[in-house]
Computed example of a mutant assay.
Amino acid sequence: MRAIELFAGAGGLGMGISQAGFRPAQVVEWDRWCCDTIRENRKAKVGGIGHWPLPTEGDIRAVDFRRHEGNIDLVTGGPPCQPFSLGGKHRAHADARDMWPEAVRVVRETRPRAFVFENVKGLTRASFATYLAHIVHQLTYPELTPLPGEAWLDHMVRLERHHTAKGSSDELRYNVVYRVLNAANYGVPQRRERVVFAGFRADLGIEWSFPEETHSLESLLWEQVRSGDYWDQHKVAKRHRVIDARLHARGLALAEKPQTAAWLTVRDAIGDLPDPEREPELAAACLNHRFQGGARSYVGHTGSPLDEAGKTLKAGVHGVPGGENMLRRADGSVRYFSVRESARLQTFPDAFRFHGSWSEAMRQLGNAVPVQLAHAVGKNVARHLVAA
């Protein structure tokens, strides 16, 4: 099945989608460092992207997608999320970085059988509710474009009227659903919440829902508090078994073992890697695994405990160098995650190389979709498209 990957970044979403059985016909990204990352790993055939076309590097607004019309099964991407980030200035539709109109344009020009777009959880804030509805209506009726000079609220009114009227049977329309997904519930060692939009062309008659969650915090607490299996597996001495008091109480309250798998922790993800601060020579043998100094803990930025799912890796002024992309050891000391450790938390393969400085590579990772989460959603979409 053929796909188009927009706003590709370092390739996390596209990689997971490719692993689910889609072959990209075009990959678009404006950032040169991200494009360098994709080009090198494509050449090395890492992560299943060896078959990708070379990325189209540049402004998506200058790219014409009409040559793909009728030949694309899936369009995916993460329109730049700064206008909606919980750490940003919340300018939303007034922000020139808002690329949702371009995502809608690509759907309109290619008429794919389905699309999957993702964004930060902040898009679901109450203050953005009207614009969120505007996005959903645009994705539902991508051919109902804004009129010249029309304000977005006026366009919203036209979309609402069209939605409640009897539409044309031959119009391009998509059945759209969205949900906030926590990556930890799908086998990612990180508590990372993203809002995911999925749409299927209405003429296909596909009934779809988001994939069931496979992992849970309750299962992890059962293994840590009730059975002790987690600690035994990692050979952690009793004196080093540190767990938050509230989580410990929650674990004690569990009456029976949950059926889901346990959340993966930071220790699960990076426990086999040498500590780049304490074992620099051993760490040097690992790709992108170098110590970065300067980490410090302060209110609101205390790092990720070793035996919990990691906190959300971040990019921008509130991530690097803001202080949250850190490991918090059992003794309370902190250090920044290396690029390789961060890649593990985002479920990138170990052979995947990130271009640029530490801060640049961490920016790429902070903006990425975990590969495992993308694969879980993409696999479910692929199954329904094959059956249609």
Rank of each mutant, 00 (worst) to 15 (best):
Cys34Asn: 01
Tyr230Ile: 07
Thr312Leu: 12
Phe352Trp: 08
Val299Ser: 08
Arg340Trp: 13
Leu153Trp: 04
His301Val: 14
Arg246Gly: 15
Arg226Asp: 07
Ala315Cys: 06
Gly48Ile: 05
Thr347Gln: 11
His215Tyr: 08
Ile72Asn: 01
Phe22Val: 15
Gln233His: 13
Glu193Pro: 06
Gly300Asn: 07
Ala183Ser: 10
Arg290Pro: 06
Ile4Arg: 00
Gly167Asp: 03
Tyr186Ser: 07
Pro112Trp: 00
Met15Glu: 11
Tyr298Ala: 11
Arg108Pro: 13
Glu109Tyr: 11
Ala285Ser: 08
Ala368Lys: 06
Glu279Val: 03
Val339Trp: 02
Pro280Cys: 10
Val157Met: 12
Pro112Glu: 01
Thr56Gln: 14
Leu181Met: 11
Phe22Met: 10
Ala261Asp: 13
Pro258Met: 05
Cys34Lys: 00
Lys311Met: 13
Gly199Ile: 08
Gly9Pro: 14
Ser216Asn: 05
Asp64Thr: 13
Ala255Phe: 00
Val116Met: 14
Arg344Asn: 10
Thr110Met: 08
Arg179Lys: 14
Leu217Tyr: 00
Glu118Tyr: 00
Gly16Ala: 05
Glu150Lys: 07
Gly366Leu: 07
Glu212Trp: 04
Trp33His: 06
Arg329Ile: 12
Val176Lys: 00
Val157Pro: 04
Arg241Tyr: 14
Gly9Asp: 12
Asn288Tyr: 00
Ile49Lys: 06
Leu221Trp: 06
Trp263Gln: 07
Lys166Asn: 04
Ile135His: 05
Ala3Val: 09
Arg91Leu: 07
Glu118Val: 05
Ser169Trp: 04
Val371Tyr: 03
Glu212Thr: 14
Lys45Glu: 15
Val371Leu: 12
Pro55Arg: 06
Val242Ala: 04
Thr260Ala: 14
Ala44Ser: 12
Ser297Pro: 12
Ser359Thr: 12
Gly87Met: 04
Gly87Asn: 09
Thr312Trp: 09
Arg179Ser: 07
Leu313Lys: 00
Leu287Ile: 15
Asn41Phe: 02
Leu254Gln: 03
Asp331Met: 05
Trp30Ser: 05
His248Cys: 10
Asp275Val: 15
Pro280Gly: 05
Ala94Met: 08
Leu287Asp: 03
Glu212Tyr: 07
Val28Leu: 13
Leu147Phe: 09
Gly300His: 00
Asp154Val: 15
Leu252Gln: 11
Leu144Met: 11
Asp36Asn: 06
Asp36Ala: 01
Ile38Asn: 01
Ala183Gln: 03
Gly319Ser: 11
Gln259Pro: 05
Phe117Gln: 08
His318Thr: 14
Ala202Tyr: 00
Met156Thr: 12
Ala184Trp: 02
Gly310Arg: 01
Tyr174Gln: 02
Thr260Leu: 15
Arg173Met: 10
Gly50Leu: 09
Val106Glu: 00
Val266Arg: 03
Leu147Tyr: 09
Val369Gly: 07
Ile270Trp: 01
Thr164Lys: 13
Val334His: 01
Arg192Pro: 15
Asp73Ile: 02
Phe84Gly: 06
Ala202Phe: 01
Arg278Phe: 14
Leu373Glu: 05
Gly167Arg: 11
Leu220Thr: 02
Lys238Phe: 02
Arg39Trp: 02
Asp95Trp: 12
Gly14Ala: 05
Arg125Pro: 15
Leu252His: 02
Cys81Phe: 02
Leu181Ile: 04
Ile270Thr: 06
Ser18Tyr: 03
Pro142Met: 03
Phe200Arg: 07
Arg201Ile: 09
Arg383Lys: 11
Ser127Leu: 09
Pro142Asp: 15
Ala253Trp: 01
Trp263His: 11
Arg173His: 10
Gly47Lys: 12
Gly356Thr: 12
Leu221Asn: 10
Leu273Gln: 13
